[in-house]
Design a protein around this nucleic acid. Structure first.
Length: 469
RNA sequence: GGCCCGUUCGUCUAGAGGCCUAGGACACCACCCUCUCAAGGUGGCGGCACGGGUUCGAAUCCCGUACGGGCUGCCA
């Protein structure tokens, strides 16, 4: 039991779940599940978080959307940092008692003045041997030992840090509150975390955390720092400048499976993808194939175009029923299920996102098609447009009741167009624009069949009237 | 300033010294198919940051340079 790996995932609880965080979560999740371990969701418990329970719920919901569900036996949490607040201070006491920490009364300003006066940068450990005791305003600092700290990283190998370059950092503030690095490590120890997989921006702080682990007599976890996600400027994806909210992609009609699959291609490649000629794989395969040692080292650009392409492929793989169901939230409330449902087979391969769905059939729901002027002008200005449309209406109106099917509709128009010596590509255009208002859209004859003869013929006649026929 | 990390087509990547005339995916372009648009098929464009080593041989190992990013708080 005790030696099953425990992977900790600690997103920053800012009320918005980041796509980069989603990818890190997925890495942890794949590892936890395929190694028989546990995915531990830990949320920092600040005053702000405590006052906004919806933030925590938002994280849980976002994780659930990408398949990381709280009812899975590999999932544990959410656990909150504050449960261990007393433990944080107790750990600080132990560090003080063992000589790994000492008190310091210097303010930030004093440190800067002193550094400037001596022509150096940083703190310099000036209170190390002053033997100060606890007092209001005094901070507790970690006594960084001489030597070298080696971080064994499962992605990047051994990374060495010269301890000379690491300042005696603060563990407990002057107001008695523990600092992130301390709280984080104590929580990790308390929660028996064995593996830390996180973004590479945390790598420079890792030696400090590792020193705390060791000073506390604990065995540090297996570290892994994965590359960050960047924007087109090669800067770390930021909430301010970039579209990073996972929810925003869901709202744009991206499928969770497509998002998950795409995210996993950033920094990692499914073995066999090259031979398969595709990067689309089911999560179950990805989960069992994922290895940290295969993750690459450089930052990746989050490419919405590629995400969208993946999404189109996932949409095409859905069943018609599932797709119709999935599109529901994007259809206007006043629309009934038909004729959309009947059109799904014809629009499926045209959708890149679920949000595209209404735009493919909106002409059917409108009382009159919205005429795109440019489509109308270019299509109806031909010599043959009027008379061909008139002939088509006549032929369609003459069709017996049961003959309003796409095959007969197509054959009928082909019959009409022979007198004009046109190909179907040209001949269908006036009919299409008359009925849909546009030159592009789902297959015409199928659409006519779904709309029915009365409405189709009415629209064509309305177009003729508009043409002055 | 100091420290750390990184650098293969536009983008994501494969590549562990000869299999590389550097492969795949997305994007883009052309053609085919085709009732429009798509989807699908075929083909094309396009890259090892630079300079030195090591080696019979380097995208791959070493050193340096350049460029990019990150960290360096009594933030998390």
């Amino acid at each position: 039991m005790s030696d099953s790996p425990r992977y900790r995932f600690a997103p920053s609880p800012t009320g918005m779940f980041h796509v980069g965080g989603a990818r890190t979560a997925l890495f942890n999740w794949a590892l936890a599940r395929s190694n028989g371990g546990t995915f531990v969701l830990r949320i920092e418990d600040t005053d702000e978080v405590r006052n906004k329970p919806e933030w925590t719920q938002g994280i849980i919901d976002s994780l659930a959307w990408i398949g990381i569900t709280a009812d899975d036996p590999h999932f544990e949490g959410p656990l909150f940092q504050s449960n261990f607040a007393a433990g944080h201070l107790a750990a600080a006491e132990r560090l003080l008692g063992s000589g790994h920490a000492y008190y310091c009364d210097m303010t930030t300003e004093q440190i800067q003045e002193r550094a400037a006066a001596e022509g150096v940068t940083g703190y310099g450990g000036w209170s190390r041997d002053r033997g100060l005791g606890p007092a209001v305003g005094n901070v507790l600092r970690f006594r960084v030992p001489p030597g070298v700290t080696v971080v064994h990283d499962e992605v990047r190998g051994d990374v060495e840090f010269d301890n000379e370059a690491i300042e005696d950092f603060v563990l407990v503030r002057g107001n008695g509150h523990p600092v992130f690095n301390l709280a984080n490590v104590v929580d990790d120890i308390e929660m028996r975390i064995t593996n830390v997989v996180r973004a590479e921006e945390h790598l420079p702080n890792t030696p400090k955390q590792q020193m705390i682990w060791e000073a506390l007599g604990a065995t540090p976890p297996a570290w892994a720092h994965v590359p960050v996600l960047v924007n087109e400027q090669r800067k770390k994806l930021s909430k301010r400048r970039d579209k990073v909210a996972l929810d925003s992609y869901r709202d744009d009609g991206i499928l969770a499976d497509a998002m998950v699959n795409y995210l996993m291609t950033l920094g990692w490649t499914m073995p066999g993808a090259e031979a398969a000629g595709t990067e689309i794989f089911p999560w179950s395969d990805i989960e069992s194939a994922f290895r940290l040692s295969d993750v690459n080292l450089s930052p990746a650009f989050f490419d919405i175009k590629k995400l969208t392409a993946f999404n189109g492929e996932y949409i095409r793989r859905m069943t018609v029923d599932d797709l119709a169901e999935a599109c529901g939230p994007w259809l206007p409330d006043e629309w009934g299920p038909e004729p959309f449902r009947s059109m799904v087979p014809f629009v499926q391969e045209r959708l890149k996102t679920l949000a595209d769905a209404p735009g493919t059939v909106d002409f059917m729901y409108a009382d009159e098609p919205v005429i795109d002027q440019q489509s109308w002008d270019t299509t109806m200005s031909t010599e043959y447009a009027r008379s061909l449309l008139a002939d088509a209406v006549e032929a369609y109106a003459a069709l017996p009741e049961g003959d309003w099917t796409h095959t007969i509709l197509k054959a009928t128009l082909e019959d009409v167009m022979t007198t004009y010596e046109l190909k179907l590509g040209k001949a269908q255009a006036p009919v299409r624009v008359a009925v849909t208002g546009r030159t592009v859209g789902p297959p015409l004859f199928e659409a006519l069949e779904v709309m029915g003869s009365d409405e189709s013929i009415r629209r064509m006649r309305a177009a003729l009237a508009r043409l002055g026929v």
